[in-house]
C-alpha cells in the first residue's frame, strides 16, 4: 500500500509539472485531491489495512497529501506569475500615439482675463457690480461732471440712439448707479462691462470692448491708497517685478486725476513698437472721485472721499499674451480662442 501511495504521489507530481494553466491545475486538483481524487480514494482505503498499520499509513498518506497541496500552491503561484508576465508583455502600447480627443471647451479670452482681474480685486474687497450697456446722456456724461458740449466729451466718440440715450462709452456711469443704490454705505466695487465707441475698426481699435471700472468710497480714502491699489493690481496681474509710474492726467469725473503706467513687459523699458518707444505701457486712468460726482451720487464730499479707476480688458490681455490685433477678440476665430 505504501508503495502504491508513493507511486500515486510520484505520478501526481509528474502530472503537475505538465500543468500549464489554471484550468489544467483545477483538473489536476480534482483528479488527485478532489473528493473522488486518486489520493482521497487512497486515504479512504485505509480501513482495509490491518489495524496496527493504519496509523503509519494514515500519517504517510496525510503527509503525501500535504506535499501535493503545497506543490499545487507553488504551481498555482508560478502560473499566476507566468500569466501576469504574459499580460504585461502583451499590454505594451506605443505611448507616442495620440489619445482619444476629449476635454472641455475654452472660455473666451475676455472672460478669462475678466476672471483674473475680478479675482485680484476680490482679494482687496472689491465686489462686482453690473450696469447696463445702453445709458442716458445724463449718467454717461452729465452726472460725471460733463454737461452738454463739455470739452471733455471729445475724449469719447459716442454712438447715439437719440438725444438722451447712447451706448455707454465707458463703465463710469455705473459709479453713479452704485452710489445711488448703496448710499450711505462705504463702497468698494469693480464694474466690468461692454463699452462702445464710434471708432473705425483697426488692429488697434474696436467699436466694442470691455472695461473694468473700480470705485472705492469711504471716510478716509486717499490718493496713496489709489496708487497702492493700482500697484498691487499691476504686480499681481503682470508680475511682481513690474515698475509702476504715476503721472498726472485729466478726467472730468476725477480730481486729482492720474494715469498709471507700467514698464513695458516686452522691452523692459528700453522702448519698442508696442510701447511706442516710450518704455511705458498705460495700465489705467484713475483719480480721486470729483466732489461734484460724489455729490451727484449722494455722498457729501466734506465727509466722504473716494477713488475711481478704469481700464480696458483687451489691452492687458494683448500685452500679456502677445496678441497684436484687437479684432481677434470679437472675430471669434476658434483657432484663436482655443489657444487660451
Amino acid at each position: 500500500m505504501l508503495d502504491q501511495l508513493r507511486q500515486v504521489e510520484k505520478e501526481a507530481l509528474a502530472a503537475l509539472e505538465a500543468v500549464e494553466d489554471s484550468d489544467a491545475l483545477a483538473a489536476w486538483h480534482r483528479r488527485y485531491l478532489g473528493r473522488k481524487g486518486a489520493l482521497t480514494l487512497f486515504l479512504r482505503s485505509v480501513g482495509e489495512l490491518p489495524k496496527e498499520e493504519r496509523p503509519a499509513f494514515g500519517r504517510a498518506a496525510n503527509e503525501a497529501k500535504a506535499r501535493l497541496e503545497a506543490a499545487s500552491e507553488a504551481r498555482a503561484e508560478a502560473l499566476r506569475q507566468e500569466e501576469m508576465q504574459r499580460e504585461l508583455e502583451r499590454g505594451a502600447l506605443d505611448v507616442t500615439l495620440p489619445g482619444r480627443p476629449t476635454g472641455p471647451g475654452h472660455l473666451h479670452i475676455t472672460t478669462q482675463t475678466l476672471r483674473q482681474i475680478t479675482a485680484i480685486f476680490a482679494e482687496m474687497g472689491f465686489q462686482v457690480y453690473e450696469a447696463p450697456d445702453v445709458e442716458t446722456d445724463e449718467l454717461n456724461f452729465g452726472l460725471l461732471n460733463m454737461p452738454p458740449h463739455h470739452p471733455a466729451r471729445d475724449m469719447w466718440d459716442t454712438f447715439w440712439i437719440n438725444d438722451e440715450v447712447l451706448l455707454r462709452t465707458h463703465t463710469s456711469p455705473g459709479q453713479i448707479r452704485v452710489m445711488r443704490e448703496r448710499y450711505p454705505e462705504p463702497i468698494r466695487v469693480i464694474l466690468p462691462g461692454k463699452c462702445y465707441r464710434y471708432e473705425q475698426i483697426t488692429a488697434r481699435s474696436e467699436h466694442q470692448f470691455y472695461q473694468v471700472e473700480g470705485l472705492a468710497i469711504g471716510h478716509a480714502i486717499t490718493m496713496t491708497d489709489l496708487i497702492g491699489t493700482l500697484t498691487e493690481f499691476a504686480r499681481r496681474f503682470y508680475g511682481p517685478e513690474r515698475r509702476i509710474r504715476i503721472r498726472g492726467s485729466y478726467f472730468p469725473f476725477t480730481e486729482p486725476s492720474i494715469e498709471a503706467d507700467m514698464d513695458c513687459i516686452l522691452c523692459g523699458g528700453a522702448g519698442c513698437r508696442v510701447c511706442k518707444y516710450s518704455g511705458w505701457l498705460e495700465v489705467c486712468g484713475a483719480g480721486m472721485v470729483h466732489p461734484v460726482v460724489l455729490q451727484n451720487g449722494g455722498y457729501d464730499p466734506d465727509e466722504w472721499s473716494g477713488f475711481a479707476f478704469g481700464f480696458g480688458v483687451e489691452r492687458p490681455a494683448m500685452v500679456k499674451y502677445g496678441i497684436d490685433d484687437i479684432r481677434l477678440f470679437y472675430g471669434n476665430d476658434l483657432r484663436f480662442l482655443r489657444q487660451f
Binding site: 454705505e185 471716510h219 478716509a220 496713496t224
Partner: peptide
Amino acid sequence: YDRFPTTLMRDELPPQRAN
C-alpha cells in the same frame, strides 16, 4: 506723484454681498 508712497486702504470694508 512719483514721490508718493503707496498704501492700502485702511478704511472700513463695506458690507460684502453675494452676487
